[in-house]
Every structure is written in C-alpha cells, then in structure tokens.
Design a protein around this nucleic acid. Structure first.
Length: 347
DNA sequence: TGGACAGAAACTAAATACTC
DNA sequence: GAGTATTTAGTTTCTGTCCA
C-alpha cells in the first residue's frame, strides 16, 4: 500500500506527496489546489498519482492556520431524536454547503443545558467562525447566566452567534413568529367548526411552546372554544397516554392541536389508539413536522415553521459578518398553513 | 523575457527546552 | 519555580533561480 510511504501513524501530508512525486512541496500544493498555475503535465500526473497512492486529503486545520479564515460553523441542536431538530440540521447543513461553502458541525445537546454549555465551549476551542444555537430553552434559569457569560466571551473573540429560537440571550434570532403559528393552527380548527379541542404541548415547556400556546389561547378565547391542555412528553407511549387523558377528560373533543414537531410525529397513532379515526372522528392540526406530515396517512394539515428559511438566514448572517458584508436582518419569518387531509368540517 | 520550479517564510498556540 | 525561547504541526504564498 502507498500508505506505507507516509509518516508512520500520521495522515499523508503535502510533503509526503512531494517526496513520492519527486517535486517540491510548493509544486505539489499547486497541483492539489487545482489552481490555474502553470505546472508541467508530466509533473502534474506524478503528483496526482502520488496523492492517490497515499490517499491524501488536504488538512483543513493546517489550511485554516495559514489562511486564517475558518469556514466552520457550529450548530447545537436540542435532541437528534426529535424530528424538529433533524429538520433544522438538514436545512442548515444543506445551505452551508450549497451557498456559503461552510462546513457545519452538528452537536446534540440531548436537552441537557450543561451539555449545551460544554458544546459551545468545545466549538469555540475548535475555532468556529459562527455558532447557531438551535436547542435552547430547556432549564434556562439554572444555566442562563453561565451561558450569557460564555457567549459574551465568544463574541468578543470574534465568533458570530445566532439562535433559531426565541431565548433570553442578546443575539439575532432567526425564527418564525410562534404566536402567529399558534393562531394559524387554532384558526383553522375553529374555522372548520370545532369548539371542543385538545392541545398537546410536547415534551418541554420552553419559550417556543409558550408563545405558540399564547397564540392558540387568544383564538380559542375569542371563539368561545372549550379546550384542554396535555403535556405529551416524548415518544409514542407518552403521546398515547396524553391523548387518552384528553378524551377521558372530555370524550366530545373533535379537534387536536399538536404544538411541536415531536408531538405531531405520534398524534395520529395516539388518536387511533383510542378507537377514533382521523379525520372522521377527530381533526388534527400540527405546528411543524413537515416531513412526517407529508408521509403520514392522512397527510397532516400543518403550520409550516419555515425551518429552511430560518437556517438559511442564520448562515447568511454569519457569512456576511465573517466577510464584513452587510448582514441580513433577523426574522421573524411568517408561518403558513399547509393543508393535508387531517381536518374536516363540523358545520 | 517569461514559464516552470524550488526554497523558505509565515500563520497559531501548545509543548518542550533552556536560562536565571 | 518563573519566565523566555524554541520547536512543532501542514499549508499557502512570496521570492529567487534556472533554462529555453
């Protein structure tokens, strides 16, 4: 194997390529960078052959060291198992590669505030150019001071920080108007004649859930809706249990609002587990959960929470600040209703 | 004169060696 | 023991040299 030509125990470097190809390091570097620099075809061939033999890839850390322009962005998400954060990671990584040529490093804080602090510190140590907080809102009181201090020090060292959810931190928030999302979901059920409605809040009572609940309540109060709230926890078992409690409390509920993506993943199954069908017996509207909503049967009527736009906005902001261009203004972005087949009229 | 290439400096920050 | 100097990592880029 050509790997034997590299220094023992280390990945091959440009110097290894140059030595095997019989050229200088600078010539090897020019060939590997594929710049429009005149290099003899025969030498170019030898360099590329040596690189292939040694399985060479450029060392980005070393390149960053020399160029002084890191293209690394840290993304801290709440929980990888929650489809909401999966959609965020999908949107941010896709956009980072496509438009800004930034590599996005995704960290899973597992809904643990202390782990969020730890990941922020470690991303800072890796010299990220930007940091996107997408997992916050859990247990804010106990660690918010420490987080504020850490973010302040990171910003002073040049890291550009944004968030994808409303939080008590002084950084631009690229997110939707969550109250409006709640109002849209509630208005759709009310508009279809539903007056006895259950609300599944999701596992965590964070700022996002609070704002969405506020929007839902405002519509229900104006319309005289009799509503009940259940914390659905996380996972299918919790959802089944919570939906069961809703119907135990009020067997005549005809509509359910699933407030988060994690909740919407299980709500259809949970309703069916009570012996009812969607939408004939119970109508369901979800906030978020676009991917799951598209694949479910029936398709979920849902409020699109514009994760793609939010992720793109945050990355564009970081890229602009790093390049010292005019940074785009942070959200809020407008949610919109996407009709599926999970809501029917009660008129 | 200019194409083609080699040599060396520079980048950052931690680890190690050296001096007082 | 404290403080300072040197080395190390891998790559990019500037400058100098050679030759047709």
């Amino acid at each position: 194997m050509g790997r034997d030509n590299a220094r023992k125990g280390n990945a091959p470097t440009l110097a290894d390529i140059a030595r095997v190809a019989g050229v200088s390091v600078s010539t090897a570097g020019r060939v590997m960078r594929q710049q429009d620099w005149p290099v003899d075809e025969e030498l170019k061939k030898r360099v590329l052959q040596a690189a292939a033999e040694l399985a060479y890839v450029p060392n980005v850390m070393a390149r960053t060291l020399r160029a002084g322009a890191p293209a690394l962005v840290g993304l801290v998400v709440g929980n990888m198992l929650d489809p909401y954060y999966g959609e965020i990671a999908e949107a941010v990584t896709k956009h980072g590669e496509a438009t800004n040529k930034m590599l996005v490093m995704v960290c899973n804080m597992q809904r643990d505030p202390m782990l969020e602090l730890d990941y922020c510190r470690r991303l800072w140590e890796h010299r990220v150019a930007g940091l996107i907080l997408a997992g916050g809102g859990f247990d804010q009181f106990s660690h918010n001071g420490e987080l504020l201090d850490l973010l302040d020090r990171m910003e002073r060292s040049g890291v550009v920080i944004t968030t994808l959810s409303p939080r008590d931190i002084p950084v631009p928030a690229f997110c939707i108007d969550n109250e409006e999302a709640g109002r849209i979901a509630a208005t759709d059920l009310v508009g279809h004649g539903h007056r006895r409605i259950g609300i599944l809040t999701g596992a965590i009572q964070n700022r996002v859930v609070e704002q969405r609940l506020s929007g839902i309540r405002s519509v229900f109060s104006k319309s005289g809706v009799d509503y009940r709230i259940a914390d659905s926890g996380s996972g299918a078992e919790w959802a089944i249990s919570s939906v069961g409690h809703l119907f135990d409390a009020d067997p005549d509920i005809t509509g359910i609002v699933a407030v988060s993506s994690a909740t919407s993943a299980n709500v259809l199954h949970a309703v069916e587990a009570t012996g009812r069908t969607v939408p004939d017996d119970v109508s369901v509207v979800s906030i978020g959960g676009s991917m799951l909503g598209e694949w479910s049967t029936p398709k979920l009527t849902r409020v699109d929470i514009a994760l793609d736009e939010c992720g793109r906005g945050a990355l564009d902001y970081i890229a602009a600040r790093v390049n010292e261009d005019d940074a785009p203004v942070a959200g809020p972005y407008l949610p919109r209703l996407i009709r599926g087949g999970s809501v029917t009229s009660r008129h």
